[in-house]
Write a protein that binds this DNA or RNA. Structure first.
Length: 478
RNA sequence: GGUCCCAUCGUCUAGUGGUUAGGACGCUGGCCUCUCACGCCGGAAACCGGGGUUCAACUCCCCGUGGGACUACCA
């Protein structure tokens, strides 16, 4: 890499940030950081009807949440701004003029209805549906006529009858024939630039050296190469990574379930886990490493390791990673990340004893797969009306169970040991007094104390619950 | 239909002409253990098919087949 690379992530604010886009952002971010280059964020909001400011705000939040910081872009103006396409309209207008004076574009007065008609006719006659260039040969008079009739033209690029080639960093040599492509619109009749037009101008003007994006843009690249050539710009290097697929191997979309970064955040997926997983999807790291921080991935990143075939999104593996990150998260930090999820589970976090909460979280964090599952794991610590499961009831029905619990309660009542010693001492006493041991000894205690037959180590549960609460819970059984 | 892309366990992948085809998720047997989880040790599980090239193909080439993307005045 001779010069400092400049890459960009260029989403359109027309919806929630999709994990596929998040992954593209991650790849660009890793590439920039790995090579000491710049990561630019550009908002492609030329579709006035679909773009919304709220989506843009969301986008920036999600990116920030993921830890993908940009060097230039919204809220971080640089030397190549503005970074919103809607604020660059004069630039596009200038460039349209440039192509007009080179006679490389022409106005098209076809209405959408006419275009649709042409399309259908072509499909019916089993020909490729593409614009046949009806307006390309319009005379000056004919154009004037249309203008006078009040028709606003779009502008189409005269696609040359040539072969266009480029070297893709991930896929190798690519080749497209101009003949297969109809004259495409570069400026819409409402004056807004079309994607392929704006993207070329911006990438060039912003000094983008590498365009890393999804495979769905592969065929667009041909059109863009044409435009680069028409402008006399040197095209950047392209790299098209594979797409994220749903279970049915089709491009991952809403009908496959959760697909937006926001949805995963609401489920209690940690950003570290999401990034790690996305970095693993359709790529790999040396020595088969799978659990890597954002920084470790960045250091090890290479486009050479990006795979070409689509990758199915595996939520189970994401959850596996998430559990690892939860487990490794310092408890204090985890407690604060858990706040919104605790509220959602119906706990007023202000009312919760922070020491108790810390202890509980520290105890159960091994079992947590997503933050949103917190409620299931802590209810028996905080709720007096904790539920007793059917399995637990069965355990409590056993004859020896009652003896154990009775003895346990008696011991607790009379004991004067410190909290840490009381439980082991009680167990020792129970073994001697009742002769019960193993499962028959511990399970009734577990069932009575927690209402369940599964859970964390009993000595730690008891330590958190304390003697009084324990006694209270034993009460119904003695 | 046209153009283009892709093809290793169910899934994500390693592999770059000679390997017992490796790892991870999931599944599963065992150990640990009051239970679950964690952890540890094992197991089942893959080179889409056919032709070439070569002493030798998962690996290179071609043809099939299969999947996917694009085919908008969306990006």
């Amino acid at each position: 890499m001779a010069d400092k690379p400049r890459v960009r992530f260029a989403p359109s604010p027309t919806g929630e940030l999709h994990v596929g886009n998040a992954r593209t952002a991650l790849f660009n971010w890793m590439f920039a950081r790995h090579h000491g280059g710049d990561f630019i964020l550009r908002i492609e909001d030329t579709d006035e009807t679909r773009s919304a400011l709220s989506y843009q705000v969301n986008l920036l939040n999600d990116l920030t949440w993921l830890g993908l910081d940009w060097d230039e872009g919204p809220q971080k103006e640089g030397a190549y701004g503005p970074y919103k396409q809607s604020e660059r309209l004069d630039i596009y207008a200038r460039h349209l003029q440039q192509l007009e004076s080179a006679d490389l574009v022409y106005p098209c007065y076809c209405t959408e209805e006419e275009l649709e008609e042409e399309r259908q006719a072509l499909i019916l006659s089993k020909r490729m549906p593409r614009y046949m260039g009806k307006c390309r040969q319009l005379t000056r008079d004919e154009r004037k006529q249309k203008e006078d009739a009040g028709r606003k033209p779009s502008f189409r690029f005269k696609v040359p009858d040539e072969t266009f080639q480029f070297a893709d960093l991930i896929r190798g040599a690519m080749k497209f024939e101009g003949t297969a492509i109809g004259d495409f619109i570069i400026v819409r009749s409402n004056g807004m630039p079309a994607y392929n037009f704006a993207v070329v101008i911006d990438d060039h003007l912003m000094g983008i050296t590498h365009v890393i994006r999804g495979e769905d843009h592969l065929s667009n690249t041909a059109l863009q190469i044409m435009l680069y050539k028409a402008f006399g710009f040197v095209p950047p290097t392209f790299a098209h990574h594979c797409l994220i697929l749903g279970k049915d191997r089709a491009k991952l979309s809403k009908r496959h379930g959760s697909v937006s970064v926001g949805e995963f955040r609401k489920q209690g997926i940690l950003p570290e886990a999401l990034m790690n997983y996305l970095g693993l999807l359709g790529s790999s790291f040396t020595e088969g490493r799978e659990v890597l921080s954002r920084e470790e991935m960045m250091a090890a990143f290479s486009l050479d390791r990006a795979s070409k075939s689509g990758a199915i999104f595996d939520e189970e593996k994401l959850h596996w990673l998430n559990a690892i990150y939860i487990r490794n998260c310092p408890t204090e930090n985890l407690v604060s990340r858990l706040q919104p999820f605790l509220e959602q589970a119906g706990y007023s976090t202000d009312a919760l004893d922070p020491v108790l909460l810390y202890g509980v979280v520290d105890l159960i964090k091994n079992d947590l797969t997503t933050l949103s599952a917190i409620g299931n794991h802590i209810s028996f610590f905080f709720d007096d009306e904790y539920e007793i499961t059917a399995e637990a009831r069965q355990i409590l029905e056993k004859e020896s169970a009652l003896r154990v619990l009775k003895t346990f309660a008696e011991y607790l009542k009379n004991s004067a040991e410190a909290v840490q010693e009381i439980y082991p001492a009680a167990i020792k006493h129970l073994k001697e007094k009742t002769g019960v041991k193993g499962k028959d000894l511990f399970m009734p205690i577990r069932a009575a104390l927690t209402g369940r037959n599964h859970g964390p180590e009993l000595d730690r549960v008891f330590a958190i619950l304390g003697k009084n609460a324990a006694l209270k819970r034993l009460n119904p059984f003695v």
